[in-house]
């Protein structure tokens, strides 16, 4: 398993190809889409792109084939990450409704709030957007609601959850294709990939002494951390740091004793947006004084949204992490 994680980059590419092949047995549309997600140049795709023509058919993350007849003029996005992606794609003007938690970019705060896990159905129907970007949570728990939206003529696109950069590229590509902003989507993906590769290269070359990093996504007493299959884990791997919780999977809660025993070299907190002075809190914990991260005061807070939200700002998260953990290499 560890071997696999080390070769994760290679592995994920192979994996994507396998998916592309498997899905290819289904429909042609899907094949082209997945391949373009993997960042491969597909000639068919570029033809379609240049003419920018609708209708387009995409397969959303619920596995449904959705045909978008016309370029959407108005969009409701009921998840913070999708809102960020849509704004990054330059669709800000078209967005007429966002979720209660959408806080980036600032323009999103001025949009109509249409709910979160529970959607305000009436409000969405009265806004009557051309397209609604919903999550797989909505798809699983409120299928009736999505049916109503579709009956009213709203194109519903289900965007699933993501736990890796490749997932995010896939989502950006899908939303880009569905909204007729494929070129922009490719640009964003290419830029993210380029910046991520650059960091990976520097890290691979210059970092010899790997630091062990402990991540906290919620403050004590319920200290949750990010194990494998999270963005944090992937980010730490790519900057040649060791995730102290790499033996665990997903978001897990560990006790103080276990954390102290892990003896991390650096601690990253992500809850600075709702707790004052998170670093001081960590530094003043009793019984932690001998932990290298505490002794050397290597406790930093990063913007939660850039390290957990599957959007275009993830790359900023990686860059910040790199600068905080290895300032001698990444801070110029």
């Amino acid at each position: 398993m560890k071997e696999f994680m080390k070769k994760k980059r290679l592995g994920s590419i192979v994996f994507l190809f396998m998916i592309a092949l498997m899905v290819g047995c289904g429909t042609e549309n899907e094949t082209t889409q997945t391949e373009s997600n993997a960042g491969e140049e597909v000639t068919q795709e570029t033809v379609n792109k240049e003419s920018g023509q609708f209708p387009v058919t995409i397969t959303d993350d619920a596995g449904r084939e959705v045909t978008v007849d016309d370029e959407p003029e108005s969009i409701v996005s009921i998840q913070a990450s999708n809102t960020e992606i849509a704004f990054a794609l330059g669709l800000g003007e078209k967005i007429i409704g966002v979720s209660d938690y959408c806080n980036y970019p600032e323009e999103a705060l001025e949009k109509e709030k249409v709910g979160a896990q529970d959607i305000n159905e009436e409000l969405v129907l009265s806004l009557l957007p051309d397209m609604a970007l919903v999550t797989d949570y909505h798809y699983n728990t409120h299928p009736d609601t999505l049916d109503k939206f579709e009956e009213a003529g709203i194109t519903v696109i289900v965007v699933g959850s993501a736990s890796s950069f490749d997932d995010v590229y896939e989502k950006i590509a899908m939303i880009g294709k569905a909204t007729g902003s494929e070129t922009k989507a490719d640009e964003i993906i290419a830029d993210m990939k380029k910046r991520h590769e650059a960091i990976k290269e520097i890290a691979a070359e210059e970092i010899t002494d790997k630091k062990k990093v402990w991540v906290e996504v919620s403050p004590s007493p319920d200290i949750y951390t990010t194990g494998k299959n999270t963005f944090m884990h992937e980010m730490l791997e790519s900057i040649q740091a060791t995730n102290a919780a790499e033996d665990h999977d997903g978001w897990v809660k560990l006790t103080e004793e276990e954390i102290v025993k892990l003896n991390p070299d650096a601690i990253i907190t992500t809850y600075g947006y709702y707790i004052e002075n998170p670093s001081e809190q960590v530094l003043s914990r009793e019984g932690w004084t001998e932990v290298p991260a505490i002794k050397n005061e290597q406790v930093f807070d990063v913007d939660n949204d850039t390290v957990t939200r599957p959007g275009p700002r993830l790359i900023e998260g990686v860059e910040t992490l790199a600068e905080l953990i290895y300032p001698e290499v990444f801070k110029k």
Binding site: D118, I119, E121, N140, T141, H142, D144, T145, G250
Partner: peptide, 23 residues
């Protein structure tokens, strides 16, 4: 349960008659 089912169950336990429909 995982986080998704967790939110689903907790929301459900709150009790609501919204987002239901004729079914």
């Amino acid at each position: 349960s995982d986080r998704d089912s967790m939110t689903q169950i907790i929301y459900w336990l709150y009790g609501s008659v919204g987002m239901r429909g004729w079914s």
